[in-house]
Design a protein around this nucleic acid. Sequence first.
DNA 1: GTGAAAGCGCTAACAT
DNA 2: ATGTTAGCGCTTTCAC
Lengths: 362, 362
Amino acid sequence: MSRTRSTSGRRQPTILDVARAARVSKSTVSNVLRDAPEVAPDTRQRVLDAIAKVGYRPNALARNLVQRRTTTVGIVVGDLANPFYSELAKLAEQRLAAVGLATMICNTDGLQRNEQEKIEMLLEHRVAGILMLQFTGQSATLEKLRETGVALVIASQLQPGADCVDVDERAGADLAVTHLLELGHERIAYLSSDLVERQSERSRLSGYTRALRRAGARHDARLVVRMRHPAPLRSDDRLRDALGGLLALDDPPTAVFASNDLLAVDLLETAEEQGLVVPKDLSIVGFDDILVAGLSRVALTTVVQPREELARLAIGLLLERIEEGAHGPARRYLLPPELVVRGSTAPPLRREDEVAHALPAT
Amino acid sequence: MSRTRSTSGRRQPTILDVARAARVSKSTVSNVLRDAPEVAPDTRQRVLDAIAKVGYRPNALARNLVQRRTTTVGIVVGDLANPFYSELAKLAEQRLAAVGLATMICNTDGLQRNEQEKIEMLLEHRVAGILMLQFTGQSATLEKLRETGVALVIASQLQPGADCVDVDERAGADLAVTHLLELGHERIAYLSSDLVERQSERSRLSGYTRALRRAGARHDARLVVRMRHPAPLRSDDRLRDALGGLLALDDPPTAVFASNDLLAVDLLETAEEQGLVVPKDLSIVGFDDILVAGLSRVALTTVVQPREELARLAIGLLLERIEEGAHGPARRYLLPPELVVRGSTAPPLRREDEVAHALPAT
DNA sequence: GTGAAAGCGCTAACAT
DNA sequence: ATGTTAGCGCTTTCAC
């Protein structure tokens, strides 16, 4: 019974069209497609020719359906416009493509609602694995994921029971604050935004606290500020208020540790807009080491997250899970952070210095 | 014949499991899933309950296979780590997700080889449409795409015969150079990297030439430099050489128009590293208006590409094509660029000024 | 309103 | 070495 398609143009040729053109059965075509060993050289050639002739292109959906597994991996990211994540996403995609896996990228804007929906969509597409570059930390979501048995790796955050690869954020924050303490700062603020997930937030804050406590500095709750994340890379009202609040204290901070580079750069902008000079009047340390931080015009002292290694290990873990299945104990890589000192930090201005010379940045 | 799966855990429940649990046929389940009108309220409820009970999740592959169309769209991008493209990709993904479409993102690194492979992969996955945020311009690729009849939109570049949405790059370059001319510059270099596709390259160069010609300035081929793209946002040897070459001329340029912001910022870094002061010794104009360009510490004068509008129009076009099919005449949106003047441009230092005062940036 | 049946394009036994 | 066959999980006529 020959079919004729008049509507909406020719339909794509299938394996059957190839079979007819090569005068073989469709399984023979399938055999050469999957290059199974038992095909006669000349038959194979006939099939190859037929494929070229009819312009055949395999249908991944059909294949994936019958094989009950896909070669697609989902990447969930909070904000693709954040350089830290887009760089990570790029590295991950590269590695996945290198082993023949396609990538579905989902942006959540950091919203639980979106996160759930996107994950649901990935599961409906039966992705072989999911890499979460950011995670709201909602346990129900994690539970659902676990039920499906899909391979899962969470990057840049620790979640008990799941494969994780993250940097030691506590140690990183400690590094940052210790650096400031060593420069002689005593009043050090911690500024954070909800762009950073709760988990990470806690770790970084705890690193901040630990460093202060070790140095015997008194903890001052007024120096810890968490805000809605400001517009990226622009000075911002909320940030201006936050900074104003800190500086209005009777004993204002001389340095700020910001929980991420985007925020740190914004702060730098805002501070200078207010007439402060960084680092003379205010030292700033960030977290992430995004590319902008390294510009000499910006020169942000910051804690480095090793992106390449993060991506490499995360994809490595994910591929293992896809191979072996999701059973077995959770694995974790904890990467050590590093501090890179640039021009945004300097010793504090002592009272008596205030009119006189300011110490230059190291 | 009941099946038992002992290996690799439980398999995911199918529509049949739901049917059994609800004591209806599978087509009834399908009917409530696609909420077809003709289902009795109580039957629907029974099915809904069964779905929840067995933890059923629709299989998008099976659905897409039988419907012979997917709800997945491919986005092809050259470099996801380039803020301009990651911002665009994010906007596009948002709009697609809003209408229920999933997004497969492919990074090509600007390589034709990769571009072809990734497009092939998208086609095998039978994506409903492809949005190219960057395109090497290879006509064979375009031809293949056209043959498949897949919905296609090319953003940020004009390709005859395909739906395009791009900004008027020629006008943009003209704007940039005219601005420099009006400031009094006479020797204006054009610096470009292969990060910019050939098409765009040509347009921008032609805008540069046109502006110069209109002003009656003599064209000097030595002022036009195209280089391999340097490491993003870091000063770079190649760039140092390129700049050195320009400044070594007997009549060196006082201003540079860079074909993209990433390059412009790199140039700024390199120039200052070499002891030049921007804009006093050298004015720089970029193209794109990526977020970093707006930082007051960077303050790059640049040509704005309206990203939001680009994404909106591109996705709009793509959705139309997915609806209507790929036949019909190609459509095109040409967006007007805008110049935003910041601190990286100023009148040139005249010989007699050289030791004395320099004019500040506007 | 509901069910039976015929595929979508492919793979993977199993025959031959 | 090649062909036959039975699905993968779903949609979609078409009977009842």
